[in-house]
C-alpha cells in the first residue's frame, strides 16, 4: 500500500535516512572537539601559515598526501606520534585525505629545515630522485594578501597589523613552507619521541670493511639529498671530514637534531643500518 502513496513514501524514506544520520553524523558533534579534549599547545594558524594552507588546498596536495597518523606500528614509526582529535580544531576544512600516493604529512613540521622544503617544492626529483610529485616552481610568485585579513577574521584567528604587514614581499612558497613547518609540531612529540639510546654504544662493525658498500648505499638513498652525494654538504652540513666518534654519529642519525632540522632515522633505519652508515662516514674521513 505504501507503493501507492508517494507523499507518505517520501516522508518515510526521509525519516529512515535521518536515523543513521542522527546517530553517526549529528550526535558525534557532542563528542568530537569536546573542550576536555582540547590541547593547550595547539595554536591557530598565523596569517602566513593560513595562506600556505590555502595554497595547499588550491593545489590539491590532499589528493596525494594524508594528514592523520594512525595508532598503528608502521604509521607511528614512519611518521611519528599518532594524531589526536585536539590537534585539528582549527582545521576548516580538515585535510586528512584518502590516498597516500605520497607520505603522510601530519607530522612533517620540524622534520626538515626550511631550505630542504624550498628545494624540494621547486624540484622534488632533485631531493628524492624517483618521486612522482609535480614540480611547484611557480609558487615562487608573490603571495596575494588581499584577502588575508578577511580570512583571519572569518576563522576568528588572532592576528596583529605587524603580522599582516610582514607578509609583504613573501612568496607563495614561503607561505607553504611556513604551513608545512607547523603541521603536527604544536605538541612537543619530537622531543618525547627522541629515543634515548640505552645500553653501551659500540659500533658492531668496527673495522669491518664488508659493510661499507651497504653503508654507502644507505647514505645515497637517505642522506645525500641534504649532505651531498660527495659529502660536501648542501641543505645539511658537509660530512667529508666529520671528526666525531662513531657513537656521536650513531646518536645523531638515530635521534636526529630537532633544533637543526635533521630528521631522526632510528625508527625507519634501525640500529644495524645506522651503524653501517656511521662506518661508511668514518671510512671517508680524511685522517
Amino acid at each position: 500500500m505504501l507503493e501507492k502513496k508517494p507523499v507518505i513514501f517520501l516522508f518515510l524514506a526521509t525519516v529512515v535516512i535521518l536515523i543513521g544520520t542522527a546517530v553517526t553524523m549529528i550526535a558525534p558533534f557532542k563528542w568530537i572537539n569536546d573542550p576536555k579534549l582540547k590541547i593547550a599547545e595547539v595554536k591557530p594558524y598565523t596569517a602566513l601559515q593560513l595562506e600556505g594552507r590555502d595554497i595547499y588546498i588550491r593545489e590539491g596536495c590532499n589528493n596525494c598526501h594524508t594528514q592523520t597518523v594512525r595508532p598503528l606500528l608502521a604509521d607511528v614509526e614512519r611518521y611519528g606520534e599518532y594524531s589526536k582529535v585536539g590537534e585539528f580544531v582549527y582545521d576548516q576544512p580538515h585535510l586528512w585525505g584518502s590516498r597516500r600516493t605520497g607520505p603522510d604529512l601530519a607530522r612533517i613540521g620540524g622534520k626538515y629545515p626550511d631550505a630542504w622544503h624550498l628545494k624540494h617544492m621547486v624540484d622534488p626529483q632533485s631531493m628524492v630522485p624517483r618521486s612522482n610529485m609535480p614540480k611547484y616552481a611557480f609558487l615562487q610568485q608573490p603571495l596575494d594578501t588581499s584577502l588575508t585579513e578577511r580570512k583571519m577574521k572569518t576563522l576568528k584567528f588572532p592576528y596583529t597589523p605587524e603580522e599582516l604587514a610582514a607578509l609583504k614581499g613573501k612568496s607563495e612558497l614561503d607561505a607553504m613552507v611556513a604551513y608545512l613547518q607547523k603541521l603536527g609540531s604544536d605538541i612537543p612529540w619530537r622531543k618525547a619521541a627522541q629515543a634515548a639510546v640505552l645500553g653501551d654504544l659500540k659500533n658492531p662493525f668496527l673495522d669491518n670493511k664488508t659493510v661499507l658498500p651497504e653503508g654507502k648505499a644507505i647514505y645515497e638513498k637517505e642522506c645525500a639529498q641534504c649532505h651531498g652525494a660527495d659529502l660536501k654538504g648542501g641543505v645539511g652540513r658537509a660530512l667529508a671530514d666529520i671528526d666525531k666518534p662513531d657513537t656521536y654519529i650513531f646518536k645523531t642519525v638515530f635521534g636526529g637534531i630537532p633544533a637543526g632540522g635533521m630528521p631522526a632515522f632510528g625508527d625507519s633505519l634501525g640500529k644495524d643500518r645506522i651503524w653501517k652508515v656511521a662506518s661508511f662516514l668514518k671510512s671517508r674521513q680524511a685522517h
Binding site: 558525534p28 568530537i32 585539528f88 582545521d91 580538515h94 572569518t154
Partner: peptide, 16 residues
C-alpha cells in the same frame, strides 16, 4: 571564489 567549511577538524571529517 573562496570559502571555509562550517565544521572543524574531526567533525568536518565525519560530516565529509
Amino acid at each position: 571564489t573562496k570559502s571555509y567549511s562550517a565544521y572543524a577538524g574531526a567533525n568536518d571529517a565525519n560530516v565529509q
